[in-house]
């Protein structure tokens, strides 16, 4: 009774304050949920980013208390540093491989698992297995796979009459060899993403396509693929950012060598920070990685935004 009368007289100051109070209460609850995560996020993510930007403006060894403020000198040095450009080039190559090989392969594996193929359960496990292993184990496993004299891969290539290759020791092959392992390791991640997205595509679309006379391939082009575009965008963001901050598999398998053949920003930053005692310069490399990732993500998001605005698909 009281309630309904309250709603009836909306201009009433009592009602206003009631709504306000209600809103404030809601805000408080929402804040209550956000704050714990926010505090942790600020301390462990935002603060280190700002601190890194700050260090990147100093000449600091990382062990002594003293650090000299040098302004943007580190950034100027970075632009003239041939190893940095070599590393960046390797990283960009890694991005291309991730986006144009890992994601399509993940999509292909997901598609295979949606066909009524024999032994689907087994394939499901086999496809996903690499992603479950720890990177260190994978790195060591593939060191032995690539072993020049007794590794299975060279045994195979020799058996096939192609000859033996120096997979990790030859500067022209080393990067490819590591990238192959990365594809092997990370394609299952995209497979899972695509599988989840495919489950979400309504059956009605396929039924309608069927009635219109679309065969399997046409159904993929006109129904499945368009429905997966948001997942492809998300995967691309993951792939780009993941490739730019890659480190572990390279550190384990080649350490950036031979020479600088497989040097990437992550390994170069590690060397500068912990081997060469240039924490300031290492921070500059980290800052550069951050900026490049940020730009890449902004571009992808902008393209996606334009696509949505034009309303091309979904």
């Amino acid at each position: 009774m009281n309630m309904s009368s309250n709603y009836a007289k909306e201009g009433d100051p009592v009602t206003k304050s009631y709504i306000k109070k209600n809103k404030r209460k809601k805000t408080r609850i929402i804040l209550g949920f956000i704050i714990p995560a926010l505090v942790i996020y600020m301390i462990f993510t935002i603060y280190p980013i700002i601190a890194t930007l700050n260090y990147s403006l100093t000449d600091w060894s990382g062990v002594s208390g003293e650090s000299d403020f040098v302004g943007i000198q580190n950034y100027i040095n970075l632009l003239g540093d041939s190893t940095f450009w070599q590393a960046l080039q390797n990283n960009l190559f890694l991005v291309l491989v991730s986006v144009f090989l890992q994601i399509p392969l993940g999509l292909l594996m997901a598609l295979v698992l949606f066909t009524p193929i024999f032994g689907k359960q087994l394939l499901n496990i086999v496809f996903f297995l690499p992603y479950l292993m720890s990177t260190v184990a994978i790195g060591i496993l593939w060191l032995f796979m690539y072993d020049p004299s007794s590794g299975p891969i060279n045994q195979l290539t020799e058996f096939l009459g192609i000859g033996m290759f120096d997979w990790l020791g030859d500067p022209n092959l080393a990067l490819m060899s590591v990238l192959f392992v990365l594809i092997w390791q990370f394609s299952p991640l995209y497979m899972i993403l695509f599988k989840a997205a495919m489950v979400g595509i309504p059956d009605e679309l396929y039924e309608a396509a069927n009635i219109d006379g679309a065969n399997g391939f046409k159904q993929f082009v006109h129904v499945t693929f368009p429905s997966l575009i948001p997942t492809i965008v998300t995967s691309s963001v993951l792939a780009v950012v993941g490739s730019l901050k890659a480190f572990d598999i390279f550190y384990i398998m080649t350490g950036g060598g031979p020479g600088t053949a497989t040097e990437i920003l992550g390994t170069y930053m590690y060397d500068q920070a912990f081997i060469n005692f240039n924490m300031g310069y290492a921070s500059t490399i980290a800052a550069a990685m951050f900026i490049i990732s940020l730009i890449a993500v902004i571009i992808i998001q902008y393209l996606d935004y334009r696509r949505k605005k034009k309303g091309i698909l979904i």
């Binding site: 060591i140 060191l143 032995f144 690539y146 072993d147 020049p148 004299s149 007794s150 033996m164 120096d166 997979w167 990790l168 020791g169 030859d170 080393a174 060899s177 080649t254 060598g257 031979p258």
Partner: peptide
Amino acid sequence: FNSGFNGMSYDEGQSRQLLYTEQ
């Protein structure tokens, strides 16, 4: 030297293995 040495890991024993197997 054995072939492919620049890609082989000392820590994982890839050189010692060649010795043990008399290669």
